[in-house]
Design a protein around this nucleic acid. Structure first.
Length: 405
DNA sequence: ACTCCACAGGAATTGAGGGGTG
DNA sequence: CACCCCTCAATTCCTGTGGAGT
C-alpha cells in the first residue's frame, strides 16, 4: 500500500504537464503570433482591432497563442489611461447555433440567460450587454466551428456598430476553429467580414514537438528523470498522428505517472509505449460511455459484423445487424436513413472507419463500415453497462466462434 | 434502349421538451 | 390559459446516378 508523501521524486512542477497550463512563450509560433499582433494592434491606437480567424487542428497552440497575445495586450492597456479594453473569452463547446451562442454570451456577461425570445431579441440583448461594458471589446470564440451552418451571429456582431445596434462598444471577433471546412462553409457575407485576417496553424513536426516537450520537461520533471531518447520518441509518436502538442505532453505525463506507480526513477521509451496504450484505452472507454443509446446500438451493429468476420460491411448489412441488436434490447428501431446519419457521426468520432466506394466519377457511391477501435475493449465497455450486457455477451460468443477474439 | 433498384444525401415536417408573453 | 420562441431526434419524401435485368 503506497503512503502519501513517499513518492520517488519525478515531478518538479506537475502543473506544467497539465492541459490547462499556458506557456509564456511559443517560439514555434513566432510567425502566427506576429500576424495576430498586427491584427490586434489597432486597439493600441484607439481604433477597432481586426476580426481574426484562427484555424488549425487541436493541440497546435491556437488557444495558447491567443491567450498569450491577449494577456500582453491587456497588460499594455492597463497602463494606458485612455484605453478601455475588455477581453471576453468564450468556449463554444456544446453550442450548436447562433441563437444559443448569443443567449449563452448574455448569460456569461450579465448572469441571466434570455430564452424563449426570438433571435432578434436575444441578439439585441447581447448588444445591450456589450454596450454596458463599453470601450473596445475583444470577443474570443473558441471552437467556433460548433455553431455549424447557423452563422448569423458572426455576421451581425461585426456590423452591429455601423447599424447602430452598438453605440458604446467596439467589438472585434476572434474566432478559433479546429475545423478547416468550417471556414469554407461559412456564408459568403460572413467570410467577407470575419475572415479579414486569417491565421493558419499547421501541425507541428517532430522537431518542433521535441522542443516544446523539452521546455515542459525542464519545468515539469526533476532533472535527469526523463531519459535522453524519450523526448524525441514521444514527439515522433505524436507527430505521426496529428502533430498535437497536447497529445505529446499528455503522453509524457502519463508515462511519468506510470513511472511513479512502478517506483522507477526514470522515464524511458517503454513507459511511453505503455502510456500510449493506457491513454488509447481511456479514450475509447470515455467515448463509448458518452454515446447515446441509438449511437451505441448503431455501433453495436458494426461490432456484430466484426464478430462475424463480415466487416467492412455495407450500410444495408450494418442495418440488418442493427435491427437484430435493437430488438434484443427492446429499444425502438430507427429507420435506415437515420441509422446512416448515426454511422457517419460514429465515423467522425473515430469509432468507425467509413470507406467510400465510388462507381463512376460523380455518381453512385456507397459506404462500408468497420470498427476502428479494439474489438475486445469495445465489448468489455459494452458489457459494463447493464443495458447492453446481453448484446455484449451474445456478440462475444459469436466472435469466439469466428475466432475473432 | 428502357425500366427498376440500391444508395447517399438534401429538404421539409413532426412532436417532445426546454422556455417565453400577455 | 392560448400562443409564441428555439432545439433536437427522427421520419418522410425527393433527387440524382450507375448498374442489373429485360
Amino acid at each position: 500500500m503506497p503512503t502519501f508523501g513517499e513518492d520517488v521524486s519525478i515531478f518538479a512542477n506537475e502543473d506544467a504537464l497539465r492541459e490547462d497550463w499556458l506557456p509564456e512563450t511559443l517560439p514555434e509560433r513566432e510567425a502566427e503570433l506576429e500576424q495576430l499582433h498586427y491584427a490586434l494592434a489597432p486597439a493600441t491606437r484607439g481604433s477597432t482591432p481586426h476580426n481574426v480567424f484562427l484555424y488549425g487542428k487541436t493541440g497546435q497552440g491556437k488557444t495558447a497563442a491567443t491567450s498569450a497575445k491577449l494577456t500582453e495586450l491587456e497588460d499594455y492597456a492597463e497602463n494606458q489611461a485612455d484605453l478601455d479594453l475588455t477581453v471576453v473569452t468564450f468556449s463554444c463547446e456544446n453550442i450548436t447555433s447562433s441563437y444559443t451562442l448569443a443567449s449563452k454570451l448574455v448569460l456569461d456577461i450579465t448572469g441571466s440567460e434570455p430564452r424563449g425570445y426570438d433571435q432578434h431579441e436575444v441578439f439585441s440583448r447581447l448588444f445591450d450587454a456589450l454596450d454596458a461594458i463599453g470601450g473596445t471589446i475583444l470577443l474570443v470564440l473558441d471552437e467556433i466551428d460548433n455553431i455549424g451552418m447557423s452563422d448569423d451571429i458572426l455576421y451581425s456582431l461585426p456590423r452591429a456598430r455601423s447599424k447602430g445596434q452598438l453605440t458604446e462598444a467596439r467589438v472585434s471577433v476572434i474566432g478559433i476553429s479546429n475545423d478547416f471546412q468550417f471556414r469554407d462553409n461559412l456564408s459568403p457575407k460572413v467570410k467577407d467580414t470575419l475572415c479579414d485576417e486569417e491565421i493558419e496553424f499547421t501541425p507541428y513536426n517532430a522537431d518542433q514537438l521535441t522542443s516544446i516537450l523539452r521546455r515542459r520537461v525542464d519545468v515539469g520533471f526533476v532533472d535527469g528523470v526523463v531519459m535522453d531518447g524519450t523526448i524525441p520518441y514521444c514527439a515522433a509518436k505524436a507527430a505521426q498522428e496529428k502533430g498535437s502538442a497536447r497529445q505529446a505532453i499528455r503522453l509524457l505525463y502519463k508515462a511519468g505517472e506510470l513511472a511513479l506507480q512502478r517506483d522507477r526513477e526514470s522515464v524511458d521509451e517503454a513507459l511511453v509505449d505503455e502510456a500510449y496504450g493506457v491513454l488509447e484505452r481511456e479514450r475509447i472507454e470515455d467515448g463509448l460511455r458518452n454515446l447515446t443509446v441509438q449511437d451505441t446500438l448503431c455501433l453495436a451493429g458494426v461490432v456484430s459484423l466484426e464478430c462475424k468476420d463480415a466487416a467492412p460491411g455495407r450500410t444495408k448489412h450494418v442495418y440488418r445487424e442493427y435491427e437484430r441488436v435493437s430488438d434484443m434490447t427492446g429499444d425502438s428501431t430507427l429507420v435506415q436513413r437515420r441509422v446512416r446519419d448515426h454511422l457517419q457521426e460514429l465515423d467522425m468520432q473515430g469509432f468507425l472507419m467509413m470507406q467510400t466506394h465510388n462507381r463512376g466519377p460523380e455518381g453512385v457511391h456507397y459506404y462500408t463500415f468497420s470498427l476502428n477501435v479494439d474489438l475486445d475493449t469495445t465489448l468489455a465497455v459494452l458489457a459494463d453497462n447493464p443495458r447492453y450486457v446481453s448484446i455484449a455477451d451474445t456478440l462475444r460468443t459469436t466472435a469466439r466462434r469466428h475466432d475473432r477474439l
